[in-house]
Design a binder for these strands. Structure first.
Lengths: 263, 263
DNA sequence: TCGAAACGAGAGCACTGCTCTCGAAACCAA
DNA sequence: TTGGTTTCGAGAGCAGTGCTCTCGTTTCGA
């Protein structure tokens, strides 16, 4: 209403600067983003951009915030395609959505989940959007525990400090989720992000060739673990129920036989 | 023997350049590494460094190779402190060693496991040292399968292409390890790296405060999964056959009750 | 011993982020 | 409508960067 013409054109120009910068980042990476190149493309002179962003880092921060929000939106949308009670389906869909976004926007992914570009400071503006992404898997876990899809019989040992951390996280975003499941959830989530980073940053080159199918396998395997936890040690590979701990060294050793095909 | 004086001083100077560059990277990050600053500290003029490294990227590549080798050495040393049959202990020690190195050398960790700094090319010189790191957990898994510490009864479904990838990896570095365990191993390893990256890059700020204890918890939890796989679905939460399992839906729903302490 | 190779110094190019100044335009209140 | 204030873009300039090229000097190897 009371938006003056100047304010409107300012908002538009700010958005335009971000759009061009985003394209440059997507094309050549964040480290080689040049303010001068952006303003050149806008027909402006380099000093003019400082009316809109105080520094190059501030522009990058704006891009980071946008990136967090778009990947969060993608995750939320994928999550919403499944029935709320379909814990496994929601998990798989969310993980794939994040990876798909990452593969479509690798430089933006690197911008937010790779090494921090400037020094080490994470500006306060970025923590809320960053949190928004993590809330998706957390909600899935909350629902999964509530409807029984996630088993809660696992027991963990840890320090008082970690239990406090988990309690705080529970009170903020994961009501009803016991420590063991909360820790398991963080575990599988960091696994998803680690797998995406490993793939995108080339650490699986020449090892995995069918990236799509491999990620799908990993996400399903991790999902199974998320829902059920680790197998009980007192019921080991042996068929025995009578206790029977794992028979260490009872399996024929395959050491020293060199490379050999396996099942 | 036949090393001329010139060759010797050249090797020394090359090493000195790398040392100074490494210090600069550790202090201010890789993105702000300046060749001119390095040569200035050496008392040389900027153009002289090009007699030793063809470009800034080539210097960074040398640092990357060194970083891979030092973290690999740290992992190998930690692995060697445990008995070979102690699969769980070796796993935990190796994971902690990598994290300890990462925390002691965060910028170098970011250099090799963060977003690739230059464009996307991973020079051929870096793939062998990078592989060296991954061989440590692979050896642990090979030994664990051989001596029965790792259960092999899990079954996975995936494509022919992924099975081929796994078979190739098995023939190269993991003899005797079935697909399911190999995939599980890659899963927990990417989890470890994901957890380290998450912590180092600040994604757990204000969520986890006792980083050390939390990482230890996660590594132990992941280690349990690595050894045993996920719990069996065919023996579900129902209180089937003597084995005290989780009663699905028999637990009072905690949704909507807000924050509540959990076991 | 002598030609060739390697080396360091220096100047220079094109580029960067960022600061400062200055005149014009837009805003808002009297 | 007028006049003071704020906002804006342009331009020049500073310090810094990676990298190239040239030019004497030093060292090597036949």
């Amino acid at each position: 209403m009371t938006t003056t013409a100047r304010a409107r054109v300012r908002a538009e120009l700010t958005e335009e600067i971000k759009a061009i910068a985003r394209r440059h980042v997507a094309e050549q990476g964040a480290s080689s983003l040049s303010l001068r190149a952006v303003t050149r493309e806008l027909g402006m002179v380099s000093s003019a951009v400082y009316r809109y962003f105080a520094s190059r880092d501030e522009l990058l921060t704006a891009l980071i915030v946008d990136a967090y929000n778009t990947v969060a939106a993608a995750a939320e949308a994928a999550d919403a395609t499944k029935r709320r009670s379909d814990t496994r389906g929601r998990w798989i869909a969310t993980a794939h959505a994040v990876r798909d976004w990452a593969k479509a926007n690798p430089e933006e992914y690197a911008l937010i989940y790779g090494s921090p570009v400037p020094g080490y400071q994470a500006p306060a503006d970025t923590i809320d959007p960053a949190l928004r992404v993590s809330l998706v898997p957390l909600r899935i876990i909350v629902d999964g525990v509530a409807n029984g899809a996630i088993t809660t019989d696992e027991r963990i040992e840890t320090t008082r400090t970690v239990r406090d951390d988990l309690a705080q996280l529970r009170s903020l975003a994961a009501p009803g989720v016991p420590d063991s499941v909360l820790s398991r959830g963080l575990l599988v989530w960091t696994q998803v992000m680690g797998a995406i980073s490993y793939e995108l940053f080339g650490h699986l080159h020449n090892v995995v060739h069918d990236d799509d199918a491999f990620f799908d396998l990993q996400v399903r395997q991790a999902g199974r673990y998320l829902l059920r936890g680790a197998a009980n040690p007192s019921r080991p590979a042996r068929a025995a129920r009578g206790g029977a701990a794992t028979p260490v060294m009872a399996v024929p050793s395959t050491r020293g036989r060199g490379a050999r095909a396996a099942p």
